[in-house]
């Protein structure tokens, strides 16, 4: 017997890649649970100063 699928996704990790996965899924019709162990989302990227090769501010 095939069990019924659930239209939601759990994303583990609230860094740049987790956040964007969650956004894409939410914007395309899925319910998303974003799970992050720390007190804030943003991950390592939020702690960087600038990003290569454009020297844009990471925030």
């Amino acid at each position: 017997m095939e069990s019924k699928k659930t239209g939601s996704v759990v994303v583990i990790g609230g860094g740049i890649s987790g956040m964007l996965s969650a956004l894409d899924l939410a914007n395309s019709g899925f319910y998303v649970y974003l799970v992050e162990k720390g007190p804030s989302i943003g991950g390592v990227m939020a702690q960087l100063d600038k990003t290569f090769p454009t020297n844009d501010c990471a925030m």
Binding site: G7, V9, S17, D24, S28, G29, F30
Partner: peptide
């Protein structure tokens, strides 16, 4: 790096979404 992580993010969303295509928009 970041752009590749960003690509991974969307790609993972696409793979996860494809597997659940028939139940899209059921829980939003």
């Amino acid at each position: 790096d970041i752009p590749e992580s960003v690509l991974d993010a969307s790609a993972a969303a696409s793979a996860a979404g494809d597997a659940l295509a028939e139940v899209r928009n059921t829980l939003t």
